[in-house]
Structure formats: C-alpha cells, structure tokens
C-alpha cells in the first residue's frame, strides 16, 4: 500500500494519476499533503506537480470520455470531499480500460462520480442564485459567500457574461480568496485581512442608495408571499438556513 500525496492543486491531482500509471502502483491511495498522517504499513510517495504530465492525463481523458464526464471529474475534485481522489482514480482507470465507462451506473465509482458532481453543480447553481451584491462607494458590486464546495472557478464565466458592464467582486470567506472583474477580465484576489470592511460598518463602505434597494427588495419579498399557502418545510428545502446569513431578504 502506497500513499500518494499531492499539493492539493488540480494539476497536482492529475500528476498523481500520471504517477500511478508510470510507476505501476496497484494498491494506492491519493490524498492531499495537508491530510497526510504516517501509517505503519504504508509507504509514502510525494508527487511533484508537473503541468506536462497533468495535461497528458487530461488529454487522455478527453479522448476516452465525453466532455461532460471530464467536467464531472473536475467538479468532484472541487468538492474537496476527503477520499474523493480515490473514487476519481477508480473512475479514471475504468474510463481508460472500458468504452463508455461513464454510463455504467451500476459501478459504485461511476455512480459516486455522477452523484458528487451533481452535488457540486447544485452548489454552483445555488451560488449563481444566492450571491447578493452590495454597491460600494468605489462603485464595485461586492458579495461574500461561504459555499459548501469550492465553486468559485465554476461560476466565474456566468458572472462575467452577465455583469459585463459593472465591476464586481465575489469573496469566498471560507477559502479566503475571491474573484474580481475589472470591466476587462476576471482575476483571482486575496485580502490581507478581512477586518477592513467588517469594522468600518456598512454606512461608510456602501453607496447611499444601497440601503433603499435592500429595503425595497425585502418589501418585495414579503409582499409576493401568499400567506394562505404558507409552507415552511418547502421554503427551508429550497433555501436552507446555512445560506440565510448572506441573503438580504432573510435579513439576519
């Protein structure tokens, strides 16, 4: 048994897959360096991230799988679920050895990949829906999020296309990075400290009209509701409580 550790990056993971084939490892487990604990009866192999090797794996996958299934692999990687690398490895091995492997839903790895990818897609979709921009004084539409999975790379295109004529910034507080659109392109950014805007209070950071539009949105949300049809269970299923913190209309 060998533990393959990689740096946690997407190219790192693909490089690890490459090593499995090159070194002909059979009993193997891939995990992030950060999660590695020495084990008595297992060796360790540290994978060096190598862009060329990673791209060879990726191009190989594109030859053996439809694009949608390749994207699913990337989504599963973004889920950051412990152990997902090993499910992905099984799936990739199956894909390289069997035709149309992505359709063998009775295989546990195939089913798991399709299910986890679906979870990630759902979270991505939720972020496209639940991001709430606030207009700052320097004319940037700013939003904070704490998604379950690392979905910022998946929503970039959506927001870039949609808000092409306004500057915007979405910051993932859990993973401590954000994406910023400067009217030309989207770049990844990190803040040295998040205290800046938290301590100053809303009024000094945000544009004057911001408060009015937030109240208008809250009013609208209240008044479009039909009391006679109240259905809290359904409401909670669609808008789970963990997202309320950043939803203007739920106003926590």
């Amino acid at each position: 048994m060998v533990n393959l550790t990689y740096d946690g990056s997407w190219y790192g993971f693909l490089s690890a897959v490459f090593e499995v084939y090159e070194k002909k490892f059979s009993l193997v487990s891939i995990l992030k360096e950060a999660f590695y604990l020495p084990e008595a009866f297992a060796g360790r192999y540290e994978v060096a991230t190598n862009k060329l090797k990673a791209e060879r794996v990726w191009n190989g996958l594109l030859k053996h799988l439809p694009v949608s299934s390749c994207k699913n692999i990337y989504c599963c990687y973004l889920s950051e679920i412990p152990g997902i690398e090993n499910t992905l490895l099984k799936f990739i091995q199956l894909a390289f050895s069997t035709k149309e492997a992505e359709k063998a839903f009775a295989n546990p790895a195939v089913l798991k990949v399709s299910q986890v990818a679906k979870m990630v897609h759902r979270e991505r979709h939720r972020m496209e829906a639940f991001v709430r921009f606030k207009l700052t004084k320097d004319n940037i539409y700013f939003a904070e999020i704490e998604p379950d999975f690392n979905v910022l790379p998946l929503v970039t295109e959506h927001f870039r296309k949609r808000y092409a004529d306004q500057k915007w910034l979405i910051y993932d507080l859990r993973r401590k990075y954000g994406i910023y659109y400067n009217l030309e392109s989207v770049e990844e950014i990190t803040f040295a400290s998040t205290e800046d805007w938290n301590t100053k209070g809303e009024s000094s950071v945000f544009e004057e009209s911001e408060e009015l539009y937030q109240s208008l949105w809250k009013d609208y949300f209240q008044h479009v509701n039909i009391q006679e049809r109240k259905n809290t269970k359904l409401h909670l299923r669609h808008v789970p409580k963990r997202y309320w913190k950043y939803l203007v209309e739920k106003g926590v």
Binding site: K161, D165, H235
Partner: peptide, 28 residues
C-alpha cells in the same frame, strides 16, 4: 446573450430565492 457588453445574459433560468409559501422568486 450579452453580445453588446451590456447588462445581463439569459440562459436556463435561476430561482434567486423562495418565499415562505415555497414558491420561487425569479422575476420582479
């Protein structure tokens, strides 16, 4: 599609929130 570098892009539709009766709020 947003071809004119304007505001907005229309695709599959998104439910941005849900009222307490469980109905989706997508449009004003």
């Amino acid at each position: 599609k947003n071809h004119n570098k304007g505001l907005g892009d229309t695709g599959n539709g998104i439910c941005h929130t849900y009222t307490e009766d469980g109905r989706c709020v997508s449009l004003l």
